[in-house]
Amino acid sequence: MGNISSHFKNKRSTIKKIPKFDQIESEQERQEKILSYLSSNDFDSIDRLHMYHFLKRYIFQNNFSSPIEDKLIKGGCKVLDARSGTVENIPLYPQEIKPNNLEFIDADVTNGLSFHDNEFDFTHLENMGLVLTPDQWDFVLSELIITKPGGYIEVSDRRNSNNGEGPILRKVSEAFWATRSKQNVDFKLIYNLDSKFELQPNIGKVHRIEKDLIMGPNGGKSGLVMQDISISFYASELAVKSLSKEIGISEEEYKKRSN
C-alpha cells in the first residue's frame, strides 16, 4: 500500500514527547484497558506473541509483504512498527540487548502519533483489528501522513474465522468476539478495510494478500501451532475472567471445559 501524497494535511511543527501510560491513566483505567484487550505482561503472553510472529512469517515467507527490503538492506530507511507489543508489556521490552537503531516508545495510537509528516519510509500496523473501533480506524489511518510519499503502509491482521475449530474452541472464540463487539470493535471491518484506506487522500494503491489457515490437525503443523496459540490465550487468567462471564459460567467451570 503506497503513500503517494501528503500535501492534503498540515505540517506538525514539533515532535512532542509521548507520555507514559502510567502518567496519563489511573491504575484502574490501565487495568480496565488491559482487561478489555485481554492481554497481559506475563511470559506466556510474550511466548504467544513470539509464536504468532514466527507462524505468520512461515505462512507469508517473510516478516512483511511490502517491497521495501532492498531499501532496508541499503540503510537510511526509517520504520515505524505500531503495536509491536501490547500496552502492558512495555516493561519487558529489552533496553540493553537490542540494535542501536531501535527505540521503543510507549504510546497510544488512538491519541495521535507525535512525529513529523513524511518521516517514515515504512509504517507497519499489527493486529489492530482486535482493538480499534471503526472511528478509531479512521483516525489512525489519517495519522499515517507520517509515512513519506512513495513509502509503504502495511496492515497485518487476521480474519474472524472458525475454520478448523472444534465445538468447544468455537464457543470460546465466539465469546471472545462478543466481548470485542461490546467494546464497539467491528471484527468484520477487516474484510473491507480497503475501503477505509481509499478514503484517505494521501494513500495510493491498496493491495491485499491473504493466506488461509485451517486450525488443528487438518491444517498440518501450522494448524497445530495456531491451535496451541489459541488454547494458550483462552486459558490465560484474563481470558478466563472475561470469557467465563460472557458465556455465563463460573471460572472453575470454564477451566474444566477448556482443558
Rank of each mutant, 00 (worst) to 15 (best):
Y52C: 03
H53N: 14
F54M: 10
F54I: 06
L55F: 02
L55S: 09
K56A: 09
K56W: 06
R57L: 02
R57K: 15
Y58L: 02
Y58M: 09
Y58N: 15
I59F: 07
F60Q: 07
F60T: 06
F60V: 09
Q61V: 03
N62H: 12
N62V: 00
N63P: 02
F64L: 12
S65Q: 15
S66F: 08
P67R: 13
E69C: 02
D70I: 07
D70V: 01
K71G: 00
L72E: 03
L72T: 05
I73G: 01
K74N: 12
G76A: 01
C77Y: 10
C77Q: 09
C77I: 00
K78L: 03
V79R: 12
D81T: 07
R83S: 14
R83C: 12
S84C: 15
G85A: 15
G85I: 05
T86W: 01
T86L: 04
N89Q: 14
N89G: 00
I90W: 06
P91I: 10
L92E: 12
L92T: 10
Y93C: 14
Y93H: 14
Y93K: 15
P94R: 13
P94C: 12
Q95V: 01
Q95N: 14
E96K: 13
E96Y: 06
I97P: 08
P99E: 08
P99H: 11
E103Q: 15
F104T: 09
I105F: 00
D106I: 00
V109I: 14
V109P: 06
V109S: 10
V109Y: 08
V109N: 08
G112F: 04
L113A: 01
L113E: 07
F115E: 10
H116W: 00
H116G: 08
F120P: 11
D121H: 13
F122V: 06
T123N: 10
T123S: 13
T123Q: 04
L125G: 01
L125Y: 01
N127K: 07
M128H: 05
M128D: 02
L130R: 10
L132K: 05
T133Q: 12
D135N: 13
Q136P: 01
W137C: 02
D138H: 08
D138L: 08
V140F: 02
L141Q: 11
S142R: 07
E143A: 04
E143S: 09
L144M: 13
I145E: 03
I145V: 11
I146M: 06
I146F: 07
I146W: 04
I146Y: 05
T147W: 03
T147D: 02
T147G: 01
T147I: 00
K148S: 05
P149H: 00
G150R: 08
G151L: 06
Y152E: 14
I153E: 11
E154W: 05
V155C: 12
S156W: 04
S156G: 14
S156I: 14
D157I: 01
D157F: 01
R159E: 15
N160C: 12
S161F: 00
S161L: 06
S161M: 06
S161Y: 07
N162M: 04
G164I: 05
G164S: 11
P167L: 04
P167T: 01
P167S: 12
L169T: 09
R170T: 11
R170D: 10
R170I: 00
V172A: 07
V172C: 00
E174S: 11
A175T: 05
A175C: 08
A175N: 09
F176K: 10
F176T: 04
T179W: 00
